[in-house]
């Protein structure tokens, strides 16, 4: 019998980039997983947590814990939202024994998409084909909070037709940072432009990352700069044939 995964698509993918969620489901189903989407899911709570509203964040985080309580695996197309649950719920609930226990029980079953493929599904080659020159942007939270560095690159290396070109500053922040992007728009925009210069220097036609939030920032800035570079979530590349 096929094993079961629950998608947590994140509120951003749900509302703005649904194709990323569909691509993730396609890849997982092709690998033989039974994919479920618990419809009561909303957000991981990070926007409130990062903005200092911990009471509000706790309400939303408790909702998350309830929705996914019985999940065998929760797979997330985001290192940032994944890290929120895996790392920061502990801080959020450090004085709430019950929610903390639920966090400890759930966190080990929450997986960022690329890591799930490599470590749980144990595949590197998902049978994808993508004809293009790709550069990979390290999302900060995937990289520094979850230690995801080589995994996505290994997955991309197995995609037929794909040429991977590294940026000189792959690890530098794109400047999104949640509410930072609208509280400090001039700094956030300047950071995005620095990143874009590095992307353009690679000559790549596509930027790929594990997080739709970074890609939203980069795509928005690429469009504004009229630079002909696509942005795709890793799941979208791995789903293409």
């Amino acid at each position: 019998m096929a094993r079961r995964v629950s998608l947590f698509v994140t509120c951003l993918v749900d509302q703005l980039f649904p194709s990323v969620g569909l691509a993730m489901a396609d890849v997982l189903e092709r690998l033989g997983w039974k994919v479920e989407f618990p419809e009561a899911q909303t957000c991981c709570s990070q926007p409130a947590f990062n903005s200092g509203y911990w009471d509000e964040a706790r309400q939303v985080a408790r909702h998350f814990l309830r929705v996914f309580r019985d999940a065998e695996y929760v797979v997330v197309p985001s290192g940032s939202c994944g890290s929120m649950v895996i790392n920061h719920y502990r801080e959020l609930f450090h004085k709430d024994a019950e929610a903390l226990a639920e966090t400890e029980a759930l966190a080990p079953r929450v997986w960022e998409f690329s890591r799930f493929l490599l470590e749980v599904a144990q595949v590197e080659d998902v049978g994808a084909r993508y004809d293009g020159v790709v550069t990979y942007h390290d999302g900060c939270h995937a990289l520094r909070e979850l230690g995801i560095k080589q995994g996505p690159r290994r997955l991309l290396a197995r995609v037929r037709g794909l040429v991977l070109k590294e940026m000189d500053v792959a690890e530098e922040c794109c400047g999104f940072g949640g509410t930072f992007s609208v509280k400090f728009p001039e700094i956030s925009g300047a950071m995005a432009r620095t990143k874009i210069e590095s992307i353009l220097r690679t000559g790549a036609d596509t930027v790929v990352s594990t997080d739709s939030s970074c890609l939203m920032q980069l795509r928005g800035a690429l469009l504004r700069a009229k630079a002909p570079v696509r942005t795709l979530h890793l799941a979208e590349v791995l789903a293409s044939r």
């Binding site: 698509v9 509302q15 703005l16 609208v182 925009g189 928005g220 504004r224």
Partner: peptide, 18 residues
């Protein structure tokens, strides 16, 4: 407005993931 001062903004695609 702050977002749009620096970069383009994605619009909801008509239908959500769910």
């Amino acid at each position: 407005a702050a977002w749009l001062s620096q970069r383009d903004l994605p619009l909801p695609p008509g239908r959500s993931f769910r």
